[in-house]
Amino acid sequence: MRMLMAGLLMMASLFVNAQDEYPKPSKESLDYNVYRTKVSVPPYGLAKVKAMIAKLTPNDEEIEKLPDNLYNSLSLREKFTYNMIHGEIYSQNCDPMPPVEDEHKKIFAQLPGAFDEYSWSDKQTQFFDNNRDSVIALIKESVTRSKRVGVNYKEAIVSMNAVEIIPFLEEVYLRDKKDHDILTVFLLLMKANKYQPFLASSSFKKLYGDDANYGTHIVYNSANEQLILQRVNDFYKNYKR
């Protein structure tokens, strides 16, 4: 417990209030940014889906949706691939997360966007909700094969409130403890489900309180890591399905 408390004391928030300069990220930090913002590309009907998308956006100028008849002709797995690699609507002008220093040493409150200037449409998030079990199974299958959880998979997990995937994600995380955004997924799931011990914690206040923003983080260290894992395991055990 003392160790956990010490970890809490070591937290730092990145509150960009009144800051007139941005830090210059190190190569390690920039490499981690590339790593954490990569999407997973599912293999199911990939060539077919990519060809369909290429026809939709020949000039790469305007975002387009696959017409209903073509979309409906895809198998569930192909729809999964389409939705995982193609955001159908525009994202707004501002980038919630400008580059930050030592990105690899941070546990962020929020996930980075998966598609930069594009986002999932309501139809796409509904696909995830309506096919929840299949989507979770396909994510697991893909992650097991590729040994990584792309930012698009993480966004889908949070969007579906897929609490049942927590043990699997923890197992993936513990393999190399490299992908701290998996810890962020745990934080977001506990927040979405209003898990009281987390909501009452000082880390919640730091990460999601009145002064928090989309760049807010806590320091990555073993104490904070253990605290999150312990909490998310307790949350999972007590989660009422």
């Binding site: 707004q92 002008n93 501002c94 980038d95 400008p98 930069d116 923003n213």
Partner: peptide, 17 residues
């Protein structure tokens, strides 16, 4: 202040035309 904080003279947003 809790979302993007872009109301200043520094930040630059990006968008599809």
């Amino acid at each position: 202040k809790n979302s993007c904080n872009y109301f200043n003279s520094v930040d630059i947003g990006t968008q599809n035309r």
